[in-house]
Simulated scan of single mutants.
Amino acid sequence: MNYKLEVDPRARGLIFDIDGTICDTMPVHYIAWRDTAKEYGIDFTIPLFESVTGMPALETCQLLKEKFNKNFAPEEFARIKELRYEENIHKVKPVEPVVELIHEYHGKLPMACGTGGYRRLAWMALEKAGVKECFEHLVAAEDVTHHKPDPETFLTAAKLIQVNPADCQVFEDGKLGLQAAESAGMIATDVTKYYEVTIGREV
Rank of each mutant, 00 (worst) to 15 (best):
residue 98 V to L: 08
residue 83 L to Y: 08
residue 6 E to L: 06
residue 115 T to R: 07
residue 117 G to Y: 07
residue 190 D to C: 07
residue 64 L to V: 10
residue 83 L to H: 11
residue 56 P to F: 14
residue 186 M to K: 05
residue 160 L to N: 13
residue 23 C to V: 12
residue 38 K to Y: 00
residue 72 F to D: 11
residue 203 V to F: 09
residue 203 V to D: 02
residue 40 Y to C: 11
residue 122 A to N: 13
residue 16 F to I: 05
residue 192 T to D: 11
residue 190 D to P: 09
residue 2 N to D: 13
residue 178 L to K: 06
residue 33 W to L: 03
residue 120 R to E: 15
residue 27 P to Q: 04
residue 110 P to E: 01
residue 145 T to S: 15
residue 27 P to I: 07
residue 185 G to E: 02
residue 164 N to P: 08
residue 52 V to D: 06
residue 77 F to Q: 03
residue 63 L to S: 02
residue 45 T to H: 12
residue 82 E to D: 15
residue 122 A to P: 10
residue 70 K to F: 03
residue 67 K to A: 03
residue 69 N to S: 09
residue 125 A to N: 04
residue 95 V to G: 08
residue 201 R to W: 03
residue 67 K to Q: 11
residue 144 V to E: 06
residue 111 M to G: 00
residue 151 P to E: 08
residue 82 E to P: 09
residue 68 F to D: 04
residue 67 K to S: 07
residue 193 K to N: 12
residue 63 L to Q: 09
residue 181 A to W: 05
residue 188 A to P: 05
residue 108 K to N: 00
residue 159 K to L: 12
residue 102 I to A: 03
residue 109 L to E: 00
residue 39 E to W: 00
residue 25 T to H: 01
residue 4 K to P: 11
residue 195 Y to P: 11
residue 71 N to M: 12
residue 101 L to I: 01
residue 167 D to I: 03
residue 58 L to W: 05
residue 8 D to R: 05
residue 80 I to S: 07
residue 60 T to G: 04
residue 70 K to L: 10
residue 2 N to L: 14
residue 38 K to V: 01
residue 59 E to P: 04
residue 67 K to R: 15
residue 63 L to A: 06
residue 194 Y to M: 06
